[in-house]
Nucleic acid binder design. Structure first.
Length: 300
DNA sequence: AAGATCAGCAACCGCCTCGCT
DNA sequence: AAGCGAGGCGGTTGCTGATCT
């Protein structure tokens, strides 16, 4: 037996919103607020819409200070950096871009930014041609033992190419998650950069969790471990400011990595167990009250 | 000029999480 | 502890205007 629908679908209007509906919704919310109950709102506002539809319309279009279109280079960069670090967590990405909605960013990424980054010319019209080109990109990369990647996006470029190089379906897990997603890269000088994406809601009373906050209860850690692959203790935990800097860093780097080494690290099996052998599924003593949540962050 | 194809984007769908009972 | 309902999120769909042939 499936879940009961959130509204009576037969008596609910679907499709594009009319200016009149927009006006009604806007007026109601400005006057009374959402009341913390979107399901009841359309009825109160005299709208024949699903509560979820009202919520979406308000958040993505009607709410004040929404920006549409014309993403700036800075915004492009932020999106790329964040996508590289946390994947398609559009709501978190949107929280870093004032006035932008998750839907807008998602659409922008899917329609423009992805092509811009990976060099698919927008003039390419025929889908089968695009597909062929993309497949060629995958196979040529996968068939090469060592890959050079040069991008003005440096860190994030390295990671994004990583997604491309790993043609494995997105894993999703339901809570409780095995904690921690490891990203390890070998950069040109043979040092290793390790990025440890761990979504944690942490209530350490001493505030000892070295975390960057993304949204209300989602946090990430970025750690650069240099060449030393040791235990978790060897992590050089970045403070929020440094980590943020690292995350949002631009700069230039030509990166080179050995696919044989990287592939196992990015395969779904190894995302869940870390290369240091530490049991990340159980909280460390330090972060004894941390818990994992959310979805995996790898694509392709 | 007209039909075919494509790109962009608004909106929907269904799953997951969380809070309440 | 279990069940339920609402909110939130990411993936996908489908419409529309633009561009191509």
């Amino acid at each position: 037996m499936g879940r009961a629908p959130c509204c009576d679908k037969a008596n609910v209007k679907k499709g594009p919103w009319s200016p009149e509906e927009d006006r009604q919704l806007k007026e109601y919310i400005e006057k009374y607020g959402t009341g913390g109950n979107w399901i009841a709102l359309p009825h109160k506002a005299g709208l024949k819409r699903c509560g979820k539809s009202c919520r979406l319309r308000w958040l993505n279009y009607l709410r004040p200070n929404i920006k549409h279109g014309d993403f700036t280079d800075t915004e492009d960069r932020m999106i790329c950096n964040l996508y590289a670090s946390i994947g398609s967590r559009w709501s978190i990405i949107a929280s870093h871009l004032p006035g932008r909605t998750d839907n807008d960013i998602k659409n922008y990424w899917n329609t423009k930014l992805k092509k811009k980054l990976f060099g698919f010319p927008s003039s390419q019209r025929k889908p089968h041609q695009q597909q062929q080109q993309q497949q060629h990109l995958f196979s040529s990369n996968l068939g090469t033992r060592s890959v050079s990647f040069s991008s003005p996006l440096s860190l994030e470029g390295m990671q994004i190419s990583h997604y491309l190089l790993n043609p494995i379906a997105t894993p999703t897990f339901s809570s409780p998650l095995p904690q921690g997603s490891m990203h390890q890269y070998r950069v040109k000088d043979n040092s290793s950069l390790l990025m440890f994406g761990s979504e944690q809601s942490c209530s350490s009373s001493d505030g000892s969790c070295n975390q960057i906050s993304y949204g209300s209860n989602v946090d990430y850690e970025l750690c650069n471990v240099g060449q030393q692959m040791g235990s978790l203790d060897s992590f050089l935990h970045c403070g929020s400011a440094e980590a943020e800097k690292l995350l949002l860093a631009g700069g230039e780097a030509s990166l080179e990595y050995n696919m044989d080494e990287i592939k196992p690290l990015v395969s779904p099996i190894n995302w869940y167990s870390n290369p240091f052998g530490d049991d990340l599924s159980s909280p460390t003593a330090k972060d004894s009250s941390c818990k994992s949540q959310g979805r995996a962050m790898y694509y392709y």
